[in-house]
């Protein structure tokens, strides 16, 4: 870690873009690990869930029958890591027959607001997400 990063003098906007379903490939799990590691560097982190990436956030995942670890509970820990902006694209949900109600209830505690619980998931349209993407300094896509 460089000095100026420790000072908070050079905070960059990091976007991790998730486009893959959770268990068919290793991308989703690897992306989550990168996010957790990257969270140590005190940057301004956002996650986007686009295309099949929205399937990562479905509630009620139960992998007992397929012998793969269910890592969806880890998304609930992201708030502890100060990762509080999860952009979910509406169009991607709709194309897949899903609504926001099918997703996990993800929240974070706002330190600046007496630890009030606030939702981490931000539903955005494709156009709105384009604007969010344009504001980023670094984008990593998985």
């Amino acid at each position: 870690m460089s000095e100026d990063m420790e000072d908070g003098g050079d905070i960059k906007k990091f976007m991790y873009m998730n486009r893959k379903a959770p268990y068919g490939t290793i991308y989703a799990l690897e992306a989550l690990e990168v996010v957790l590691i990257g969270a140590a560097f005190d940057q301004d982190v956002s996650l986007a869930f686009v295309d099949d990436g929205v399937f990562q956030l479905t509630k009620g995942q139960d992998t007992a029958g397929i012998g793969i670890k269910n890592f969806s509970p880890a998304f609930k820990a992201l708030g502890d890591y100060d990762v509080t902006k999860l952009y979910v694209e509406k169009e991607s949900l709709e194309e897949r027959g899903l609504t926001a109600d099918d997703l996990m209830d993800l929240v974070y505690e706002d330190e600046d607001d007496d630890w009030a619980e606030k939702p981490s998931i931000r539903l955005v349209s494709r156009d709105e997400l384009k604007t969010v993407l344009a504001e980023q300094d670094v984008i990593m896509s998985f």
Binding site: L36, N70, F71, P73, A74, A77, D80, Y81
Partner: peptide, 15 residues
Amino acid sequence: DEYQIAPAIRVLVKA
């Protein structure tokens, strides 16, 4: 048990 990850040190401290 709850989150399926071992927390980073600063997360542990905070919790």
